[in-house]
Design a protein around this nucleic acid. Structure first.
Length: 262
DNA sequence: ATGGTTGTGCGACAA
């Protein structure tokens, strides 16, 4: 079972890269964030042609939007809203094996890492706290995968310069602390870091605003795949598809993949 | 310090 997560930054502008991901990796499940389209306008036919017939679409006009695309039937599907807002940032589904996939798009948090002065940052912190409360209340021992753009780069090696990004939203101590708290709720395992040692720099996002993303390599690891302890022994591999940042019509995020053995 | 780019949808705004 191969599960991919990708902040696709506008699914309608990204059908080429999506087909390329499928040809390259053939994931069984693809979780998308920032689809940026209301459900009526979602490119369902194109996605079905790629082999994904079982789809959970949860979008809105222009902003946010998540989707779970699956080659295998999904059941017990659902969505959630957070912070008393209607933002479409969370969807979940259960695979035939009983494994739950939770697809999450955490608010980016704006520019200023000050909850008093910046409502977007306050929203991000509140969102992470609500996620932690919800996961703390969920029953133990479930087999679950949490994927998505969590918009936090927790490790020093998850950013191009720990020192220079300490006061930059996505890598501030308060965000890292909240992500750690969220991780502790279910003893989530960082699947990708099981295969790429924490000493090694690893990024999933590079700004569009750099002249040469690969040369400057000022990336951050914002996109994550976590599994509950019950699935740790099933982890067979995990990859960040860095090359996708260089594809034609690239998103600013690249796909992240995990393989689970039965 | 500032500006750099992209998507949505056609003007800002969010990232």
């Amino acid at each position: 079972m191969r599960i991919a997560t990708w902040n696709i930054n506008g699914v309608r502008r990204r059908l080429g890269p999506l087909a390329r991901l499928v040809a390259h990796a053939r994931p069984d499940v693809i979780s998308l964030q920032e689809t940026k389209v209301e459900d009526d306008l979602f490119p369902r036919a194109a996605v079905e042609e790629l082999g994904y017939r079982f789809n959970l679409i949860h979008g809105m006009k222009s902003y946010n939007g998540v989707a779970i695309l699956s080659r295998v039937p999904i059941e017990d599907t659902g969505t959630r809203a957070w912070c008393g807002r209607e933002d479409r940032r969370y969807a979940f589904a259960t695979l035939p094996s009983g494994i739950e996939v939770h697809n999450c798009y955490v608010p980016s948090g704006g520019d200023m890492p000050d909850a008093e002065a910046n409502d977007k940052f306050a929203h991000k912190l509140r969102f992470l706290k609500e996620l932690a409360v919800w996961w703390s209340a969920e029953s133990k021992r479930r087999r679950a995968v949490l994927v998505g753009d969590l918009n936090v780069a927790p490790l020093e090696t998850d950013v191009w310069s720990h020192k220079q990004l300490l006061a930059v939203v996505s890598h501030t101590p308060v965000e890292v602390e909240l992500l750690d708290r969220l991780m502790a709720t279910r003893r989530w395992v960082d699947a990708v870091r099981q295969f790429v040692p924490p000493e090694q720099h690893l990024y999933t996002w590079w700004s569009y605003r750099n002249r040469d993303w690969a040369k400057s390599d000022r990336g951050r690891r914002l996109d994550h795949i976590w599994v509950t302890p019950a699935l740790r022994a099933s982890l067979a591999g995990a990859t960040v598809l860095r090359e996708a940042r260089g594809w034609k019509d690239a998103s600013d995020h690249v796909p992240v993949l995990v393989d689970l053995k039965p």
